[in-house]
């Protein structure tokens, strides 16, 4: 790793750890950070109720925020590579909407999707179907793919709204779900996200050079020894899988997958190895900050996290686009 990449990584990871501690300390019941740190080394500095809140609610939530952010960020990077477009993201491309669509349809049809496993399977089916639709359209003309994705996004969102309207109570929870929430975080979900994080990081790091080649002309990629179509499909399946699991458990959280790889690329360039390593902790950091804000902005209440990520993400994104000429990487 180059010095610059190492510095970026260290800043993101350390900020993420600080954000984790702040996230654990902040909420309706405020718990002193120093006490939390002391508690890590000595079990008796925090009282029992606080300890219960920390262990049962805040630690799993902070862990889920951290891991979800990282996964969404690297999945976004994957989409951007597959479609050779820095604006590609599961949210923009309608892949998240595909998951919402299938879940709301499932609910409307009376399927039982309350289990930890059936919800991601149904969400995955929807997002994968959307991904294939996009891929086979984008293969012919990759430039029209983004517009096609936006159209799919509108269509599926409209269908989801229709199902919510028709399904009334049994589909109502989809409304909250489409805005994203980490309130139902648990250790089980944190464990699932950990497995998913390890899987996607190892998977992407193994093929970081192939991902670099995918940014070149299609025929050049083939001549350099990769079957570009197969690689794209594989990356699309994996990123859809990881995105759909996140969408299934935490709802639709926009902008992380778009913003984090973009920021990382601005500082470190387009090579995938540092991008994968550094955009994960950046995503973790930004989603944790968003989660903290969502919990403190309205006293004794909580805003859906998707609203916060979009409110934070859009101005950062605009400012990056406006500064485009003054930065070294495009």
């Amino acid at each position: 790793m180059k010095k610059k990449e190492l510095l970026f990584f260290i800043i993101c990871v350390s900020s993420s750890v600080i954000a984790l501690l702040i996230s654990i300390s902040i909420g309706t019941t405020k718990i002193n950070i120093i006490n939390i740190i002391k508690n890590i080394f000595n079990n008796f500095t925090v009282d029992e109720i606080d300890l219960y809140i920390i262990k049962s609610i805040r630690i799993p939530r902070a862990l889920c925020a951290m891991l979800c952010g990282g996964i969404l960020s690297v999945s976004g990077l994957c989409f951007q590579t597959v479609f050779k477009n820095p604006l590609a993201d599961s949210y923009v491309l309608g892949i998240s909407s595909g998951a919402s669509f299938s879940v709301s349809l499932g609910l409307l049809l009376g399927l039982s999707i309350n289990s930890v496993y059936s919800l991601p399977v149904i969400a995955f089916t929807g997002s994968l179907a959307t991904s294939f639709l996009l891929f086979f359209n984008g293969k012919k003309n990759i430039n029209s793919m983004l517009l096609f994705g936006i159209a799919i996004n509108f269509f599926l969102s409209a269908c989801t709204s229709l199902f919510i309207f028709l399904g009334k109570k049994q589909v109502q929870f989809v409304i909250y779900w489409t805005m994203g929430s980490l309130s139902s975080s648990s250790y089980l979900k944190a464990a699932i996200f950990t497995i998913l994080s390890v899987f996607i990081l190892l998977f992407l790091l193994r093929r970081n050079k192939k991902m670099d080649l995918l940014l070149l002309n299609e025929t050049t990629a083939f001549s350099l020894g990769i079957n570009a179509n197969k690689e794209r499909l594989l990356l699309l399946i994996v990123s859809s899988l990881t995105t759909s699991v996140i969408v299934a458990y935490c709802g639709v959280i926009g902008f992380i997958g778009l913003m984090c790889p973009h920021i990382t690329r601005k500082f470190l360039g387009p090579k995938h190895k540092p991008l994968i390593i550094c955009s994960f902790p950046l995503g973790a950091l930004i989603l944790q900050i968003s989660d903290i804000i969502s919990r403190i902005v309205i006293p004794n209440s909580e805003l859906p996290i998707g609203i916060i990520t979009s409110i934070i993400g859009a101005p950062i994104f605009f400012s990056l686009l406006l500064k485009r000429k003054s930065t070294i990487y495009d």
């Binding site: 050779k84 070149l216 002309n217 025929t219 001549s223 360039g269 387009p270």
Partner: peptide, 15 residues
Amino acid sequence: ISYVGQNDFNKYSFT
């Protein structure tokens, strides 16, 4: 086989 295409570059800025 090595291959060089026409205007074979992308919007991502490698050195």
